[in-house]
Each structure stands twice: as structure tokens, then as C-alpha cells.
Nucleic acid binder design. Structure first.
Lengths: 335, 335
DNA sequence: CTGTTAGCGCGTTCAC
DNA sequence: GTGAACGCGCTAACAG
């Protein structure tokens, strides 16, 4: 379909050897400026661009990275991708996307398929369905890899995360200051450090303020919208909490639905506070208090780290970069 | 980093020729089952996977497609990507993502960089900043390409779109039936067929119902949130429309903000209706009437078409696939 | 059924 | 300054 314009073609048209063309294109000192100019102008004229497969094969570098995430259609991850892409462009890299849909087997299959030199490095936010550090302990030895947000700890790999514990603590405290005493917790990512840290922040805030934790007020996230909806409705009906703290954005919809189905007024009957990157949602519903992770920045930072590694540069300090989330308090804390 | 396990290594260990190994791996009929089995087991043992660069170079097939879109962090596009990815997985293809940020030069640069055999085909939703069909007329001759949603017409390329005219007509009619007579139009994608069709639907609905179109009620989208906000505020202040029809989801935020800033009650003072794929937003604000394009399906269909082309299969009928959008009418039409 | 040979397009080495 | 020759890992043509 595309007429082959390769180094050989350029060499023929200019009546010089292939090697000379190659060197000229790479601006080698061995080539005269005159020859270089002849090559460059013809290259431009014919729209020559080097064949990536050929140079990959030769150089073992692909100028490509992979992003392995649970799902693109999620505010947090799509913003992260934006950040990643921005940095990738600066470095002239291409970005492959793989969605695991929280399926650990798919996750392994994808990453394994990347080990044969398809990409120079991987950025990943792991599936929450399992915490299997064995696999990743092995993987990080084979390919440059940076974790972001959903990470594996205690591995020889950089991770970019946020202040999950602190922000969950502050958020819970905010609910308490608003007068809430029965704060239900919608628990997501329970297998992962991020999920555990958020929950710990919630627990410690209760403790600090002398509120006894009640296990009945916790609902754990499951796949399947209906199930979550039912669980929350049951929670609301049985235990009548005065607030819902949603630890992941996927819980917002069932939480709102449950309240509506039970004719509970938000925020009068129940206050709602959520981790969320839904800027639009916040605007449409200006009274929703939210925790926004700096998704875009996380993507940027993670990508920057990966490129530092790929360029064999020293990483500044730690292997663990922690960015700050933002707690946006709205009128009357709730939706 | 990864210890080289290639076809040569397998051949040596098994004391057979490289070609035999290659054929065995590709399950060629020329190779005995016994030999195949020996090769397969060793391959598995050593975790052999073919080097993609080498096979790309030889076969001129990359098993990779590119998706070129304005932005990932957008409900419509992120859902489209999900659909594309799903189909790509089925075909064992990899997916590269490029964001143009509505910059036509970036768009051209990206697509040009894909012409040297980096990908087998391209899926694109073009930038709205310009309608320059010359470039694409040329491009479609060079590489298999499918347009989705934001398309170029009259080119020899498949396009997957939605019923923009019809749904805009219906939506406008709905506002009229709700009693609105001064319906302002927030005009996006004005250079593209989709934007034109939506506007035409709006105009014709007005006409059908005997309402005179007023040019002052139109606000055109520009980059820069603040500018849009000001324009809408001016519109609301000067002309006091009883409804806002937003033709793109990017207009929702400034529209809501403008109403809030002017203390206009939605939907009592102004009804609001928008193109949108914000399922969350709809839920948080259950009274918002929306037009949802089937983003996921569009992605799937577009990808399917591309793979049919790549496999030299006949496309069923037309080069133009039109999917139906959904008008979700909510209580009292407005936000 | 198996092996030999010849590249795919590029970059590098070493002669000249 | 320039060119001939080789090889990255794999596949396809042809031979046997």
C-alpha cells in the first residue's frame, strides 16, 4: 500500500552507498556536510522515515512503552493516560494500552507478551482482584517497570502513589466535624496497599475522635453493580448511618442509587463523601465533597521515572514518590 | 535484561535447523507431529516468544493498530477505546494511542509517523479545529483507515457515525414539547459533519414547530473554559433563553457554571439538554436530559471494520455505518 | 518431511 | 569521506 521508501532507495537515487546514507541521516561526523545536505533534502522530499521494525531489531530499542491498567473508561485512569502520553511525546515514545478489567490472568498474559522486546518499559496500575507479589517480583527483574497508584510494595521497582492514609483520615475527620457519628465505609481495593491505607485512615480518624468502629457499617466492593446496590441498601436500611464514605469512585453510582431508592435525602439524611476524579460530577452536584487524586500528575511522574530508568539516569531519591490528594469540601458535605 | 531465547537457540538445543523450528512453531503441514511436539515443549520450557520486530520486518505485519483521537480523558473517547480494545484483543492485536488535543498539526505528525509500517491500520476521530480533507484524501490511499464519530466524508474510507441529525431534531422537539420557545444552541464541532448535522437537526425542529431561529441564541465553542463561560453568561443575561441545548459534552460545565453564577434555577428558569456520555453525571443529577451516543459500540464497530479490511474480507454493505443514539428524557427536562 | 539459502531494512565495523 | 560486508531474528523459496 505504501510505496517503499527506504535507505536503499535514497542511496540509489543519490548514487552513493547505503552506509553513507545511514550515517548522513544519523548526522555522523564522518560525512561531509554537502553529502548530508543532499541526503536530508531527498529524505524530506520522499517523506522518508526509518522502518521501525528494522531499527528495533538492530538496536533492541522500540521507543515504545506499555500502559497496563484495569480500565480506560474511568476518570482516574484516563487522566493518568493523558499525563503519561504528554511525557511520552516529549521523549518521542509511543504508547500501547492494555486493559485488564481487573482480571489477574489477563494482566499476566499481557505483561508476559511484552517481555519479548515489544516495549522498552511498562507502566502499570495493578488489578485489585489479587495481591500476588511473586509474579511481579519476577517481572521487575526482566523489564523496567513503574507502578502507579495501585502498586506492589517491597519490590525493586519505583512506585508513584498518593497520600491515601492521610487524605482518608482528613476526610473522615471532616465528616465527624460535620456532626456525623455513624460513618459507613464503602471499601474498595481491599487487597491493595491503597485500599488498606484508606481504610486505616478512616479507622484512625474514628479512634482519634473517640468513635467506636462498627464492622456492620462496612460494605466491600464486588463486581456487579446490582450486588453493590443491594448491599448498600441493606446497610442504609438496617444501620441507618449518617454518612457514607466511598473509598473508590466505582461506589458512587450505587451509593446514590441506594439513597434514591430509599428516599433518603442527600445530604440531609445521609452525607456522602467520595474518592473521585469526576470534575463534571462535582460541578453538576456542587455540594458533593470529594477527594481528588492528582491523576494527571501521577501519570506524568510515573512516566518521568520510567524514562529516567530507560535513560540510565539516577533517580533522585527514593523509589517511592507520594503525591498529595485534594479534599474539596463543599457546602454541607454531601451530595 | 531478558536472556535471549530465540529460534536459533531452540534449533541448537534440538539439533534441527532453524527453518524447521520456525515452521513447527507456525504449525506448518510440512512438519511431523513428533518434531512439532519436541519444538513446542522446549519452546514452552524456555518461555520462548517470537521477537516481534523480527517478524514485523519479515512479514510486513505488525499486529498493531493505532487510535488517533483528540483526547483520552473524555467520556465518549474513553468508552470508544474500550470497545476498540475489546475487538483488538479478539484478533490478537496491540493498540497504540495518540492524542491530538484538537491540534491539526499534531494529528498530521502522528499519522505521518505511522506510515512507515509501524501499524497495520488506523482508527481515528479527527480534530475539530479544521476540515482539511486534502490531507486525508491522500492518507487513505496509503494505509487502511477507519473514521469514527468525527469523520471526513466523500473519501474512500469507512466511517462509523451516529444519527446526529435525527437525535438533535428529537431533542429539540422534546424541549419544544416541554414548552420552550427560546432555545439557545451551544455549537460545537462546527467544522465537522457531526456538528453540522446536529445544528441542522436543531434548525429543522424549530422550523417544523414554527419557531423562528435566532442567531443571537447561538454560542460557538472555543478553546479556553473562561471564554465559553463568559459567552454563555452574556447569552443568558442578554437574551434570556428558556433552554440551553449543548451539542457537545465540553459545554456542560460552563453552561452549569453560567447558570449558577447568574442564580438561574435549572430547570425552572432554564432547561438544559446535552450531548453527553456522562452516565455518572446523569445519576448524580437525575433530572438532566441527555443524548448518549453509543460510544462503546462505535469503538467496536469501527475496530471490526478495520479488521475486516486488514483481513481482506468484503465489507457487508456500505462504507458508512450509522448507529443510533439514545435520548434519555428525565423528569422536567433539565438539570 | 527437513535443511539450505536468501533476504526484510537498518546500523555498525572495518577496509579503502 | 565513503563503501562493502555482516548480522539483528525471523520467514519464505527452493532443494533434497
Amino acid at each position: 500500500m505504501a510505496e517503499a521508501v527506504n535507505i536503499k532507495r535514497l542511496a540509489q537515487e543519490l548514487n552513493i552507498s547505503i552506509a553513507t546514507v545511514s550515517k548522513a541521516l544519523n548526522d555522523s561526523y564522518e560525512i561531509s556536510l554537502k553529502t548530508k545536505n543532499r541526503v536530508w533534502t531527498l529524505a524530506k522530499e520522499l517523506n522518508y522515515t526509518p522502518n521501525p521494525a528494522a531499527s528495533n531489531l538492530r538496536s533492541n530499542k522500540t521507543k515504545t512503552i506499555a500502559v497496563v491498567i484495569p480500565c480506560v473508561a474511568n476518570n482516574f485512569f484516563s487522566l493518568s493516560i493523558m499525563g503519561i502520553e504528554e511525557i511520552a511525546r516529549q521523549y518521542g515514545y509511543h504508547v500501547l494500552i492494555y486493559q485488564t478489567h481487573e482480571n489477574i490472568e489477563a494482566e499476566k498474559a499481557f505483561t508476559n507478551s511484552l517481555l519479548n522486546g515489544r516495549v522498552d518499559g511498562i507502566l502499570t496500575s495493578v488489578s485489585s482482584s489479587e495481591y500476588n507479589s511473586e509474579y511481579y517480583a519476577n517481572l521487575v527483574k526482566k523489564i523496567p517497570l513503574v507502578f502507579f497508584d495501585r502498586v506492589y510494595e517491597n519490590l525493586d521497582a519505583v512506585r508513584v502513589t498518593t497520600d491515601d492514609y492521610e487524605i482518608a483520615f482528613q476526610a473522615t475527620e471532616h465528616l465527624i466535624e460535620c456532626g456525623c457519628t455513624k460513618i459507613a465505609y464503602l471499601f474498595g481495593l481491599e487487597n491493595l496497599p491503597a485500599g488498606k491505607a484508606r481504610f486505616a485512615g478512616y479507622l484512625d480518624a474514628l479512634k482519634t475522635h473517640g468513635i467506636t468502629f462498627m464492622e456492620q457499617l462496612v460494605v466491600k466492593y464486588h463486581d456487579g453493580e446490582e450486588f453493590n446496590l443491594q448491599q448498600i441498601k441493606e446497610l442504609l436500611g438496617k444501620h441507618k448511618p449518617d454518612a457514607l464514605f466511598s473509598s473508590i469512585e466505582e461506589f458512587i453510582i450505587p451509593a446514590y442509587r441506594a439513597c434514591r431508592d430509599l428516599s433518603l435525602q442527600i445530604p440531609n439524611d445521609v452525607k456522602v463523601l467520595s474518592f473521585s476524579n469526576l470534575s463534571t460530577a462535582e460541578l453538576l452536584n456542587p455540594s458533593l465533597t470529594t477527594i481528588s487524586q492528582p491523576a494527571f500528575e501521577i501519570g506524568r511522574e510515573a512516566a518521568k521515572c520510567l524514562f529516567k530508568i530507560l535513560n540510565n539516569k539516577q533517580l533522585d531519591d527514593e523509589q517511592n514518590i507520594i503525591l498529595k490528594s485534594v479534599l474539596t469540601k463543599r457546602e454541607s458535605t454531601g451530595g
